[in-house]
Simulated assay, not measured.
Amino acid sequence: MERLALKLLAIREHARRELARKLAARGFAEADIDAALDRLAAEGSIDEARLAEHYVAERMGKGFGPLRIRGELREKGLEDDLVERALEPLRDEWPACLADVHDRRFGAEPPVDHAEYGRRARFLEQRGFPTDSIRRVLRWPD
């Protein structure tokens, strides 16, 4: 079982809860899973802080916002404080990321009407950016 867990970790980083779920789905006993994951964590093979940092950087690079990334990391089973520590250093970079995502998708011109404004706002919300930041980027013409 430990070999399988290492194999999964070699493919990509996993949270402890993710690994436990995958191993349980393959029929291993919960006590055995916990013991194996404890050993892997002790030797540094499972490092949820490292996972969170890499995941945030990767997803930000693909144009996803902090709200979506936060939700995805929570789904993986990471604790809220760990997620917040991974997101915090990039706090000042989110507006530039949002503007870049918007400009790549829609160009630098502001929306021409309410329908276009709504379409852009929905797209950016689905990407995980906060509403107030979206409003600043879309800058409705006066």
Rank of each mutant, 00 (worst) to 15 (best):
D113K: 02
E72F: 12
E75M: 06
Y55H: 00
A35D: 12
D113S: 05
V137N: 12
R127S: 05
A99W: 00
E53S: 01
E75T: 13
L90E: 13
H114W: 15
F28S: 11
A35K: 09
A31Y: 10
P141C: 07
A10V: 09
D132S: 10
G77L: 09
H14Q: 05
A15M: 03
L138C: 00
K76Y: 04
R50W: 01
E58Y: 07
P141F: 07
R91I: 02
R136L: 10
H102Y: 07
L78C: 02
I134M: 08
E58K: 15
R26V: 09
D113M: 05
E2W: 10
L6K: 03
E93K: 10
A96Y: 08
R17D: 07
D34W: 13
R119P: 09
E84K: 02
D113P: 00
E109K: 14
A41S: 11
R119M: 09
G77D: 03
H102K: 13
P110R: 04
H54N: 03
G107S: 07
E93C: 15
A20Q: 10
E84P: 02
L19E: 02
D92K: 14
A99G: 14
L90N: 09
R16I: 07
L40G: 00
A20I: 13
V137H: 00
P66S: 15
A5M: 02
E18A: 06
D34R: 10
F28W: 15
D47P: 01
R127V: 06
V56N: 00
A57P: 03
G77S: 04
L6E: 13
E58L: 13
H54F: 06
K7D: 09
L87W: 13
L23Y: 11
E30V: 14
V83C: 03
A31Q: 08
R136Y: 11
R127M: 04
Y117D: 04
E48K: 03
D34E: 11
G77F: 04
A25R: 09
R122H: 05
A24N: 10
F129Q: 07
K7I: 05
G63C: 12
V83Q: 10
E13K: 00
A20G: 12
G71E: 05
R3Q: 14
A5H: 09
I11W: 00
P130H: 06
W94L: 06
A99Y: 09
S133A: 15
F123L: 11
L73C: 01
H102A: 13
V137K: 08
E88F: 12
Q126D: 15
V101K: 04
L9M: 01
D142F: 08
G27Y: 06
L67K: 04
E2D: 12
A10Q: 14
H114P: 10
D38G: 05
A42L: 09
P95V: 10
K76Q: 12
R39P: 15
L40Y: 01
